[in-house]
Structure formats: structure tokens, C-alpha cells
Design a protein around this nucleic acid. Structure first.
Length: 585
DNA sequence: CGGATTGTAG
């Protein structure tokens, strides 16, 4: 189509144009065509030179040539520079984009809104927020601040760089908010961990005149996944189906991910089976969905299917598979996968795979083998040692635990979580004076523990429970009900778990009693606010403590309710007094 | 002439 256009507007034979197309982005061929253009006099054609420069701009190896060309072209126009900026931006070459922008200014060609969207996107791609801000001011000076394309790209830039309040400021100033601006803002919140804000904005969008599209759904579904907001996720799924949206790979995968992380992995499987085209990402999402639920067999089944008629697994697939094996206690299967990963698929084991292996061996009780494994690594990362300490704690191996925890601290002396782990191991051995010592170090270093919180969704609204901020929905009624529950389970044999003494030193504030851990509060709230037969779902940001785990087992029995808790690592399904993790966490 | 937004693990 370009060709006809060109031959119409150019007095030169289209053979020159065809030669350009044949040359593609290859430098040598481009040189030849350029030489030919000069000999035939066609080098005075701006359109042919522009095409030449664009082609040079579509490959890293010829970008320098494009720069030289752009300087040599006698009467460049806006289209030439905008194209060069856009193409170098597509290659991820921010500084070339800026170079062309400077050339443009130098040639006294006024930049357009196209110029700025390309430039801003370039900055966003590499998170160059400082440069982005100066481009922002250039756009302002040139009078493009009410251009909806420029505004949307700025929202995306600031959102991606984590400057959400700036992004929101630009967003709020927009007179006409395009679907892209909404999506950039929603997914910006979600990707920076502000899932609640993403959902709130999605609700606001519902009141606007802009209709959501597949990118909106992907963003809000990811937010639901973070929050464990199954009801809202279901609602979005229904909306997608009822409005006839096609389930493309990205959207389908977002749904699988949402269902997996919201505790309805079966429904995720239904979506998965219905998807026509599946890429590695979709397969991996399905496998990891099973993995975090401890459904090792199902993960393996999907993996086998993938081997038969799916794409090649990648390094992330193997992380998902290995962690599925780790959580299901499938050590032999895990070992086999690990060796097959390199031998059959040429995937070199990386840090994450080593973490999975140590975790898997350690959980299964092969502590010495796990330790040997760590020692054989060239440079064990903090995550590897964390897995090691966790395993020692789980199997109550004090000596190894202290050793590993100290190594961990030596690598990352400023991470509060590591001190917590060390003090946990000490407490495990009853060395309370050392626990106190670690605590004092933490206070001296002003290291703050991570704040634990739990989220529960009731009537499509999410409620966050945390030791730090007591919201108005945490009423005395909730506390009273929780106390009643604790009394009830004590009557049927619950005794506060051993670990209880030290947990208050662990991840949540020590001044609060153990029974007020956020997951227990959320649970009491959920039981109070929902109908008898419904499943309770809670999402916790940290790992559950042993005492809460035990208490919730009892609570599931005395209340005859199914309770599903997602903690930092995996799911726990409590029913009739037992948990699907089989206390294997 | 053409643009800005979207997924997988830990």
C-alpha cells in the first residue's frame, strides 16, 4: 500500500523503492541502495530517503547509519523525524530517540503530539523518569498538555515508574479520558502493588462513559489475583463472557492466574481447557495454580500434557513445576524434572531453581542434602539461605538453622526478615536470651518488621485487617466473636501451639496478643458477615504462623465451614479440622 | 503516514 502511494508521489521509478524493501534493515544492502539512489539522482527524493532512514532505524546494527543519514538529508520534515523517533523507540534506543528529537529542534521543525507520545513511551520503556519529566515539560511548553494521547502516555510513564500520585494527577486533569488512560492508571496501580486502588478505579470507570476492554480486564483481574477477590473476579469473568469478548491468550491467562490465586483452581482449569491457543505463559500459569494449592499430581499432569502437545517449557515453567513438587512432597519427581530441565530442554538452572531444590529437599527432611546443595553453589543467594533456614525451623534442627541464619545475615545484614528468622531459630531451641539479643540488634539498627495483614472479601468488597491500622469495621463484636471461637476450640482440644511465644516476635507486632493475628480477625469477621454454607477465603501477605494454622483447623471443625487461606507461599484449605497442606508447609 | 494500555514465579 505504501508502494502505490510512493510511486504516485515520486517521479522516480518504483524500482528504487522496491530495492529498498528488498534490502530490509540490513546495513550492507542499505548502503548499496543508497549509493544507487545517488547515482540515479533519486537521493533528492525525501520520501525515498525517509524510507531508507526508517529501514536503517529498524535494526540495532544500522542505527548509527540512520543517525548519519538524518543529518545529511537536506530538507527533513516532521514525518521523517517522528518516524525516526518512533522506530528507535521501538528498538528501545532511548538516546537515539532523543538524538532525533534534538535534530528535529535543530532543524526548526516543530514537534507534534506524535513526537511526544513516541518520546514518552521511550522513556517509559526503560523507566527513565527523570528524562521523562523533561520531555513532559517540553510537551507542556509546546502546548500539548491537553492532547489526550500525550496525557495517556504520561500517565503510563509515571505509573510504570511508580510515581502513582503524579500519574493520577495527570489522569485527573484529563478532560476526555480515553480507555488507554484508564487502563494505564488501573494497571499502574496493580503493578505497583496497589490492587485496592486498581479495583476502586475500575469501579469509578464503571460510572464513566468509557467501556472496559480486554486490557482493562487484564489489569483488574490481576488486581483481583493480588487481593484474592474471587467474587469480583467472577463478576469480571461473567462480564467478559456476557459481552462477547474473545478470550485471547493474555486475557485467558489473566483469568487462569486470577482463579488460581483466588483459590478456585478448578475454574481456572475450565478456562484453560477452553482456550484455543495456549502459549508457555498460559501453561505455566495453570501449572503454578495447581502448585500453590499443593496439587502436585495435577501440576504434573498438565506438565505432561504440555510435553506432548504444548510449547517448550521455559525457565519459569520449571520454577513452577519444582515448587509444585516441593509443596506436594514429590521429591523424586522434582529431582527428575530438575535434571531433565537441562538435559532435555537446555534450560540452565538459575537461582530460583536452586531455591526450589533447597526448599524441596529441606521440606522433605533431607536437611543435610539440602545443606550440601547450598554449599556447592557458587554464590548462594539470600533466598537460598532463607529456604534452608525455613527447613531447619520446620524440622527443628537448631544447629544447622543457626548456621544458615548467620550466613543469611552475613549476606544481607539490613533485611529485617532475616533477623526475625534467626530469632525464631533461637527461640526454637529455647535460647530466649539470644532471642532478646537479636531483638536488641534490630532495635539498634532501626529495622522494622514487615507488617502482617489479611484480606477478606465480603459482598464483592475487600476488607484489610492489620495490626497497624484498625479500621472501623473491626468492631468489638468481631473481637467478642473471636474470643468466643477461641474458647470453643479450646473445649475441643485446641492448645496454643508451641511456636506461639516466639511468633509475636516474628512477623506481627508483639504487643498484640496472639489471638488477634490478622488472619484470625479476618476469619471472625468473615464468619460473622457471611452465610453459613459459604466458603471463607482469606489472603495473607506473610506466612501463617503455626498457631493460627492449628486454630483455623479447629475453627473449621466447630463452625463446620470450609476455610481457604492463601499465605505468602501457598494455599491452605481447611475443612473438618484438617488442612490440605497436611501440615507440610 | 502514525500513537498511548495488557499475562506467567519468588
Amino acid at each position: 500500500m505504501d508502494k502505490t502511494n510512493n510511486s504516485r508521489s515520486s517521479p522516480f521509478p518504483s524500482s528504487a523503492y522496491e530495492a529498498l524493501v528488498r534490502a530490509g534493515p540490513r546495513l550492507k544492502q542499505l548502503h548499496q541502495v543508497h549509493a544507487h539512489l545517488i547515482t540515479t539522482g533519486a537521493h533528492r527524493s525525501l520520501s525515498l530517503l525517509t524510507k531508507l532512514a526508517i529501514l536503517a532505524c529498524s535494526s540495532h546494527s544500522s542505527i548509527a547509519y540512520a543517525r548519519k543519514l538524518s543529518v545529511s538529508i537536506p530538507n527533513p520534515d516532521s514525518y521523517l523525524f517522528n518516524s525516526l523517533i518512533r522506530f528507535s523507540s521501538k528498538l528501545g534506543l532511548l538516546y537515539d530517540a532523543v538524538f532525533f528529537y534534538n535534530r528535529m529542534l535543530f532543524s526548526l521543525i516543530p514537534p507534534s503530539n506524535y513526537t511526544f507520545t513516541s518520546l514518552i513511551k521511550s522513556c517509559a520503556d526503560v523507566s527513565a523518569v527523570k528524562l521523562g519529566k523533561s520531555v513532559h515539560s517540553h510537551a507542556l511548553v509546546n502546548g500539548f498538555m491537553s492532547d489526550s494521547f500525550v496525557q495517556a502516555s504520561l500517565v503510563a510513564l509515571y505509573a510504570k515508574c511508580g510515581e502513582l500520585s503524579v500519574a493520577r494527577k495527570v489522569f485527573d486533569k484529563m478532560r476526555q479520558r480515553s480507555i488507554v488512560a484508564w487502563n494505564a492508571m488501573i494497571s499502574g496501580y496493580e503493578q505497583n502493588g496497589f490492587a485496592k486502588d486498581a479495583v476502586d478505579l475500575f469501579r469509578l470507570m464503571g460510572k464513566s462513559s468509557v467501556d472496559p476492554d480486554s486490557a482493562t480486564f487484564v489489569g483488574v483481574l490481576s488486581a483481583c489475583a493480588q487481593l484474592g477477590a474471587l467474587q469480583l473476579g467472577n463478576w469480571v469473568h461473567d462480564y467478559i463472557v456476557n459481552h462477547g469478548f474473545e478470550l485471547n491468550v493474555v486475557l485467558g491467562t489473566a483469568l487462569i492466574n486470577m482463579y488460581g490465586r483466588c483459590g478456585d483452581v478448578r475454574k481456572g482449569r475450565v478456562v484453560f481447557d477452553a482456550m484455543r491457543k495456549k502459549n508457555v505463559v498460559a501453561w505455566t500459569a495453570m501449572i503454578s495454580g495447581y502448585g500453590i494449592h499443593g496439587y502436585g499430581k495435577e501440576a504434573m499432569e498438565v506438565y505432561k500434557l504440555m510435553q506432548c502437545n504444548g510449547p517448550s517449557p521455559n525457565e519459569i515453567t520449571f520454577v513452577a513445576m519444582l515448587s509444585a513438587c516441593a509443596h506436594a512432597g514429590m521429591v523424586n519427581e522434582g529431582r527428575a524434572i530438575f535434571s531433565s530441565m537441562r538435559n532435555d530442554y537446555g534450560v540452565v538452572p538459575g537461582t530460583e531453581h536452586h531455591v526450589c531444590m533447597v526448599d524441596m529437599l529441606g521440606r522433605a527432611g533431607f536437611l543435610n542434602e539440602a545443606y550440601d546443595y547450598v554449599l556447592k553453589l557458587k554464590s548462594p543467594t539470600p533466598a537460598v539461605w532463607t529456604a534452608m533456614v525455613g527447613a531447619c525451623k520446620m524440622h527443628k534442627n537448631f544447629d544447622l538453622g543457626v548456621e544458615a541464619a548467620e550466613k543469611l545475615l552475613a549476606i544481607e545484614p539490613e533485611n529485617p526478615g532475616h533477623y526475625v528468622m534467626l530469632s525464631n531459630v533461637y527461640a526454637l531451641a529455647g535460647k530466649m536470651e539470644r532471642v532478646e539479643k537479636v531483638r536488641n540488634v534490630m532495635i539498634k539498627k532501626r529495622l522494622k518488621k514487615h507488617v502482617g495483614y489479611s484480606i477478606i472479601e465480603v459482598d464483592q468488597r475487600t476488607y484489610l485487617f492489620s495490626m497497624r491500622d484498625k479500621s472501623n469495621f473491626v468492631t468489638s463484636e468481631v473481637y467478642r466473636y473471636l474470643d468466643e471461637l477461641m474458647r470453643k476450640i479450646s473445649e475441643v482440644g485446641y492448645v496454643s501451639a508451641q511456636e506461639s511465644v516466639l511468633h509475636e516476635l516474628e512477623e506481627e507486632e508483639r504487643e498484640y496478643a496472639l489471638r488477634y493475628h490478622s488472619e484470625k480477625l479476618a476469619l471472625a469477621f468473615g464468619l460473622l458477615k457471611t452465610k453459613n454454607e459459604s466458603v471463607i477465603r482469606i489472603v495473607k501477605n506473610l506466612r501463617m504462623c503455626e498457631d493460627c494454622h492449628l486454630a483455623i483447623k479447629f475453627i473449621s471443625r466447630v463452625t463446620n465451614r470450609e476455610i481457604i487461606v492463601r499465605d505468602k507461599l501457598r494455599f491452605h484449605h481447611f475443612k473438618d479440622g484438617v488442612c490440605t497442606c497436611a501440615d507440610y508447609w
